[in-house]
Write a protein that binds this DNA or RNA. Structure first.
Lengths: 355, 355
DNA sequence: ATGAAAGCGCTAACAC
DNA sequence: GTGTTAGCGCTTTCAT
C-alpha cells in the first residue's frame, strides 16, 4: 500500500528509472515507443513524484514558511490567504505557524521551518528589533520578508509606517475638537506595531496642542475582554476619544462603551487601525486607518520568490499609499456638555446648551 | 553557505555519522567522551537535522495538510488556527491550501499534498458526496478527517448536522410569529453545508405550518455583495425573516437592510449560522446557530493523529451539542402592520395598532 | 562503543 | 535513446 515510486514505473514499463524521470519530466529524449510505455505504466500505477526525493536532490522544497501571531485577527488571516494564493501561483506551498504573540514560539517555529528546509519565510514578529527568530533567519541567509513589521537588519518588509499612520488619528481627533484622548492596546509589550502606533499618536497629539494621550493597556484573558474593557472605560470616563491599536479592539471597545450606556460618538469617539471589513458592518461605521493586508501578504511572498528565482523583487507601494484614513460615524465631535459621559443629554449646563 | 549536515558534524567530532545520529537522537549508546565531542561539534556548527533526509528514510513527514475554502470566513480561520495548534502539540506542521470553493483547486491541492507526502489531511470540500478530491484520498488510504462536511465514504467527520441545526432557525422564526421567510445563500451550488441548511430549514418550516421559505441565491462578485444584497432585499420585501447560510452573510444582509431604511428586527428578522464573535459586536446582536470551529479543527487533527499513531480516536461530541441556538436582537416578532416594510410605524391601520 | 554500508526516491552526469 | 550510477541527509542493521 506504499505509494508507487519511479522504480515501480520503470519496472512496469521495462526500462530504467532515468528514462522514466526523463519522460515524465519532459526533460531529455525518448523514443515514441518507450514514452508510451512509461506514460501507460505511470497512469495505471497512479504514480506521482515524491516531493521528498526530489527535494533532497534539488535542495529546494518549493515550500515557504509563514509565521503570524494569530488567525483570530482577520488582518493576518488575509495576509495568510494572500500569501498562500501568491505562492500557489508559482507552485509553492505554505507551511503555517501561529506564534500567539509569543517570542519563544516564534523562534521555535523558525527552527522547525529551517529543519523542514523551507525555501523562504514570511513572518510577523512581536518585536522586530530584538527578535531572535529574525537573527536565526539572518544567520542562515534564509530568504525572507517581514510583514507588518518595520524593516530591520536590511530585511525586506511589507508594512505601513505605523508612527506616520497614527498621526492621522491624532489629526482626525483634533479636527473634531477632541482634547483628551486615550490609546488602547491589547498586548502592548508583544507588538512593536502597537507601540509604534502609540508613539506616533502621542507625538502628533502634542504637536497639535492636545493633551498627551492616556495609555490604556489591557491584558488578554480568554473571554474576559469585554468585561475588562468595560472596567477600563468606566474608570477613564473623561476621555472623549480613543484610538485603538487595531480594529478588533476598537469594535470591542465600541461594544463595551455601549453596554455602559455611552453613545458613540457623542460620549466617546473611536478610531481603529487596520480597516477590516467588519468595521463597515457596524452602525455607526468604524473610523479607522485602513491598510491592505492582501497586498502585504502577496508582496512578501513575491519578494521571497523573486529572491529565490534571481528576479527583481516587486516594487513596494509608495509609503504614502500603504494606509489611508477611513472616516466613519464612530468619530464625531465630543458632546460639549458631557460631565460624566453618561447623562450628557440631561446634564448640560444651560449656558453651554447648543441651539 | 549550505546548512551543516550530519556528515559535517561527524567530521568535526572525528567520528562516524551513525554515532552522531545516535548521540543527537539519544538512541543507542556512546562513550562520555564522544558524546561530548559530538554535542560540541553540533553546537558550534549550529546543526539541525534535515527533516527531508529524515522523512525520506522514515516515510513520515510529520506534516499534515489542511484544505479549507477560504480564510476570509472567520469560521475557517478558527478551524485552521486550532488545527495548527493541535498539530504543533504533537510536533506536526500544517501545510495550508485554500480552495476558494473550487473543486478543481481542491483536487489539485490534494494531489500536491500527496506528492509532498503529508501524513494526513483535514479538509472541507464543496460537495462531499461527489468530491474527486475525497475519492483520491480514499484511494490512497491517506488518513484524513472532514471538517464541517457530513461523513461520507466512512471517513471521520467533525461537523454539525446541518439539516437538524437549521430546524432551530425555523422554530425560532415560528415562535416569533413569522410566516413567510427566506433562505439566503452565497455560493449555493458550491457548499453542501449551505444546501443542507436550506433543506432542513424548508422541511421544518413546512412542518410548522409556515410557508416554504424563498431561496435567495446570490453570486459573489468582488466588492458587490452589499449592492446585490440591497437589490435582493428590495425585491423581496414581503419576507419578514431571513435565515442566512452563514453569519457573515447575515451581517451583510443586516447592513444592506438598514441601508434600505429597514429596521431590525421590526421590518426584517435575521438569523445566521456559525456563531462568529462579530455577531456579538453589532447592535442588535445577531441571532444565530452557534457552532464551535475550534473543536472541529482540533478534533479533526486529533483524529488523524490518532490514526497515525494507532491510538484510539478522540470521541466526537454528542451531535446535540455541536450547535446551539443563540438568541439575539436581530430576531423579533414581525411588525404586524407593515405594508411595504419601510413605513411600518406610520402606516399601521388603526384597527391593528398595538397598545 | 562505534564505523561501514544499505537504502529511502529522485535527478543528472556519464557511459554506451 | 537509454541504462548505470553517484549522491542528496538521514536511520538502521550488521560487523567489529
Amino acid at each position: 500500500m506504499r505509494p508507487p515510486t519511479i522504480k515501480d514505473v520503470a519496472e512496469k514499463a521495462g526500462c530504467g528509472i532515468a528514462t522514466v524521470s526523463r519522460v515524465l519530466n519532459g526533460t531529455g529524449s525518448a523514443s515514441m515507443e518507450t514514452r508510451r510505455k512509461v506514460l501507460a505504466a505511470a497512469e495505471t500505477l497512479g504514480f506521482e513524484f515524491s516531493a521528498l526525493g526530489r527535494s533532497l536532490q534539488s535542495s529546494s522544497t518549493r515550500t515557504i514558511g509563514c509565521i503570524v501571531p494569530s488567525l483570530a485577527n482577520p488582518v493576518f488571516a488575509e495576509v495568510v490567504q494572500a500569501a498562500q494564493h501568491e505562492g500557489h501561483r508559482e507552485g509553492y506551498q505554505l507551511i503555517l505557524a501561529c506564534s500567539e504573540y509569543d517570542e519563544d514560539l516564534e523562534l521555535q517555529a523558525v527552527r522547525t521551518l529551517i529543519a523542514k528546509q523551507v525555501d523562504g519565510i514570511i513572518l510577523t514578529v512581536s518585536n522586530a528589533e530584538t527578535s531572535e527568530a529574525l537573527e536565526l533567519i539572518c544567520d542562515r541567509r534564509l530568504p525572507c520578508s517581514l510583514v507588518y513589521n518595520r524593516p530591520v537588519r536590511g530585511l525586506p518588509a511589507w508594512s505601513v509606517d505605523n508612527r506616520f499612520a497614527a498621526r492621522e488619528a491624532a489629526r482626525a481627533f483634533h479636527a473634531h475638537g477632541h482634547a483628551q484622548t486615550g490609546f488602547l492596546a491589547l498586548r502592548f509589550n508583544r507588538s512593536d506595531r502597537s507601540r509604534e502606533r502609540y508613539e506616533g499618536f502621542v507625538e502628533a497629539c502634542l504637536d497639535l496642542g492636545m493633551a498627551a494621550p492616556l495609555l490604556l493597556e489591557i491584558e488578554e484573558q480568554e473571554g474576559k475582554l469585554l468585561e475588562l474593557l468595560g472596567a477600563l472605560l468606566a474608570e477613564h470616563d473623561t476621555l472623549t476619544g480613543i484610538f485603538a491599536s487595531n480594529d478588533f479592539l476598537a469594535l470591542a471597545a465600541m461594544k463595551a462603551a455601549r453596554d455602559l450606556g455611552r453613545h458613540i460618538p457623542e460620549n466617546l469617539s473611536l478610531i481603529g487601525f487596520d480597516g477590516i471589513s467588519t468595521g463597515l458592518l457596524v452602525d455607526p461605521h468604524l473610523a479607522t486607518i485602513e491598510t491592505n493586508p492582501r497586498i502585504m501578504g502577496r508582496g512578501a511572498v513575491a519578494t521571497v520568490l523573486a529572491r529565490l528565482q534571481d528576479r527583481l523583487p516587486p516594487g513596494q507601494p509608495d509609503p504614502g499609499t500603504t494606509f489611508r484614513f477611513r472616516p466613519g460615524g464612530s468619530l464625531g465631535p465630543p458632546d460639549p456638555g458631557r460631565t460624566d459621559g453618561r447623562e450628557a443629554a440631561t446634564s448640560l449646563p444651560s449656558s453651554e446648551q447648543p441651539l
